Simulated assay, not measured.
Amino acid sequence: MNTNLFAAPSDITCLVTGLWEAVFTGDEHKAIGLVLRAVDEGIAPESVLLDVIAPVQAKVGEEWAANRMSVAQEHAATAINDRAVAALSVHPAARAAAGRGRITVSCVDGEWHALPARLLAEVLKLRGWHVDYLGAQVPVSHLIAHLHRTGPELIALSSSIATRLPTAHATITACQAVGVPVLVGGAAFGPDGRYARLLGADAWAADARSAADQIQSGPLPRPETSHQTIDDLPHLSDQEYTMVTRTGTRLVRTVLHSLEAAFPAMRQYSDLQREHTAEDLAHIVDFLATALYLDDADLFTDFVTWTAFILTSRGVPANSLPPALHLLAGELKDFPRASRILELGSRQFTAPSSVPSAAARNHP
């Protein structure tokens, strides 16, 4: 067996190409065989995880956004990548003594993109940590019970969907309240970690490798347990976030009803097209609420641009978006921050030629 732990760039490129072809065609056996053979030939398991499987999974998301993969194909490809990670995790070369300490790795409640967290968990195991990997959609109360029972050195919390950030904030605060420091990662927290800082996380990492490096460099200090959530985000005192969240269903129903008059083409929509329109409106309201929570209009404008890209990629006219935003603004005319954000969203409306930022595109 070749004992070289670092592959040449050309080797990695070939592996990425081969794995992509396997997951795109739904060939699970080929994908797993390729991953295991790479480790047999001396490529470090961590490199296979982070330099092969991770970029292939990123490409899966990009191809779905560009409408070159269906939802079913995207799910199948993700499942194959997940099983490739599982197969690699039991390879003899991936076994390491867990002597460094205990860490919990979890997704935020409501977050079902579990593969980024899974990759981090496997890398930490490779580096000698005892890892409790809890997977996707972990309720806060169950997570806190787990922390009480196991007493980890820290929790690594993952979220890819920006609309889960209010829940992430509650989770961060709850973990810190029991004395466990929180490292966060995932596209939801912004490409520069801006939302991680805003929500009071103890640390942020851009990817699994940098997260593992941070953890390995030394322990995070235990947080103060007297922290109060409202102190972080004083703008929430205006109650706009709360009101938009509570009335979200009514807002979607009202705007959907009025949109037919504002956008006559909708009168010809099928029942399925109307259902999809209602779903899009619900996502718009969710992102507006999250932008209000964070007091960050960029999150909403990025999402509007992303939505226009997705609609255009699928051959759906994106010119229904400005009327929808206008109608929503009319319903929220007494909410200054919401009105400002919606106005900025309308101004930013374009038919983009490329996919916007990761925080926006990691949307259901």
Score class of each variant (00 low, 15 high):
residue 261 A to I: 03
residue 149 R to H: 05
residue 242 T to Q: 15
residue 257 H to C: 07
residue 148 H to M: 01
residue 214 Q to I: 13
residue 266 M to E: 04
residue 218 G to T: 14
residue 254 T to D: 11
residue 169 H to S: 13
residue 188 A to T: 07
residue 157 L to G: 02
residue 227 H to L: 14
residue 189 F to P: 01
residue 195 Y to T: 03
residue 199 L to R: 01
residue 155 I to N: 06
residue 147 L to V: 05
residue 149 R to L: 04
residue 239 Q to N: 15
residue 231 D to T: 06
residue 235 H to I: 02
residue 221 P to A: 11
residue 196 A to F: 01
residue 206 A to D: 05
residue 223 P to G: 05
residue 233 L to K: 08
residue 241 Y to I: 05
residue 181 P to E: 03
residue 195 Y to E: 04
residue 184 V to I: 09
residue 165 L to W: 00
residue 151 G to C: 01
residue 214 Q to Y: 06
residue 152 P to F: 00
residue 206 A to P: 02
residue 244 V to M: 03
residue 233 L to M: 07
residue 256 L to H: 12
residue 215 I to V: 14
residue 221 P to K: 05
residue 255 V to Q: 02
residue 214 Q to W: 01
residue 194 R to P: 08
residue 169 H to V: 09
residue 226 S to V: 12
residue 240 E to S: 10
residue 244 V to D: 00
residue 216 Q to K: 10
residue 249 T to F: 08
residue 253 R to I: 02
residue 175 C to R: 15
residue 190 G to T: 06
residue 189 F to G: 00
residue 249 T to S: 12
residue 210 S to T: 14
residue 146 H to T: 15
residue 174 A to N: 06
residue 197 R to S: 12
residue 205 A to P: 04
residue 165 L to T: 02
residue 229 T to H: 14
residue 233 L to C: 06
residue 179 G to L: 09
residue 267 R to N: 10
residue 238 D to W: 00
residue 258 S to C: 05
residue 173 T to V: 12
residue 259 L to F: 02
residue 252 V to D: 04
residue 250 R to D: 11
residue 149 R to M: 03
